[in-house]
Design a protein around this nucleic acid. Structure first.
Lengths: 133, 133, 133, 133
DNA sequence: GTGGTCTAGACCACT
DNA sequence: GTGGTCTAGACCACG
């Protein structure tokens, strides 16, 4: 799986890493039980600090997307992916609200806004079933 | 208009302020041309520093949502709100994508995700036309 | 002479007033020895604070463009307009330099920059000889 | 690159900083991609507060002259400098006009005025290609 | 009284 | 060590 970082972005690198790994799981590029590169090698590949990779992995572990074994390294949660429980739904709403508000101020009607959301969802989900390179 | 800050949140206070003011405009609680409290009074009301309020106001001014008059204080942009131009649409997609990805991982299907987005949009837009308290 | 203020501008109102009066003199809309409206009436006409008008007049007096008589009010310097002495030339250079620098950064060549300066000069000077409304 | 501040000037310190950095880019003293001192070290060097430097850097970032990396610090925009678009040309005209008007009042003819503008442009541009000290 | 600027000192997130 | 954020207190320009 290819990870593309934007070092000039306002988004912290570890956050970009988290997002892309989650996206990888969502698209099926990363499958449950699959091995992830070690902190060291991934950091080397991406040319970033190994603390940064570590922070991303830790974050993903706390969210339940990863398991971290001391020797075997990290692997995608093999059994039970985290669910869309109410806390997550609240978080989702809390993050979408400000976007919706700004969209409304800028004159986007509901259809246009929903179309954008649907496009975002589809652009990820349509890839599902892809092979693991 | 009532502003509710969460000082514990990891979202910067000035950002929360920005979001809530945009939301206020979107709902119609704040109308174009309407006066906003002075940085000092709002800071006092919210129990935060005036520089924090100032940062939020300045940010909103640069985005085109506010006008800042030298001594009349700040008011909601009376004429042309910023438009939903391509940069904004890109930003919107970029922020929705990771949310969609996580939703997919957590097993939300497209309908459920879209329903959440629509709920967020509606919860703001339905208030439109409300009186100015 | 018509004065057009932009209350939303970053430029202080008194400064806009100063600039427009100087421009009026430059175009010949205001002639040496001519009477200016009283502080009170001008302030009323423009809908601004009378301190603001007063500040503009005082500023122009210090620069030598106006005479202020206690009873007769203000009039355009009848005899010797200030000259383009070295202090002024220094000031002029000091204000043009940053503009030139930014223009260079933005890829304007010398001709384009000079053309803009010449256009600014001409747009004022060409009006010269106009009647005093 | 040497920065010279006038703490007595009525031009805000952060503005002087902005201007001098833009001038540095224009002269070629600062080259695209080049590293700038950290806010802390520059503030220490200049004997001013780090927030003042930060304000200048942030301003330049928003204008597109700088990139700010989270911990690499600031560097001159490596790729595409901002362009001389119409907004900039309008701003340029708006700032040159009052200068031209005063020059006319003071009896400078067009040639003299243009000569001054050309001198300002040349004094910056002629240094172009200089080495980076 | 309003925002604009500057200073000072602190804590945190990021790498 | 870097920038980002927040607080606090001060002075000034503006109107």
């Amino acid at each position: 799986m290819i990870i593309q970082l934007d070092l000039e972005s306002d988004i912290p690198i570890y956050r970009q890493l988290v997002n892309q790994i989650i996206e990888g799981i969502a698209t099926g590029l990363l499958n449950p039980g699959e091995q992830l590169p070690s902190v060291r090698s991934l950091a080397a590949d991406l040319g970033i600090n190994l603390h940064t990779v570590n922070k991303a992995y830790t974050h993903l572990k706390q969210e339940g997307f990863l398991q971290i074994h001391r020797q075997k390294g990290a692997l995608i949660q093999p059994h039970s992916m985290p669910q869309a429980d109410t806390p997550f739904k609240h978080k989702l709403m809390a993050e979408v609200r400000p976007l919706a508000a700004e969209a409304i101020c800028r004159g986007m009607n509901e259809d246009a806004f929903i179309a954008a959301c649907r496009a975002a969802y589809s652009s990820i989900h349509h890839n599902k079933g892809g092979t693991t390179p």
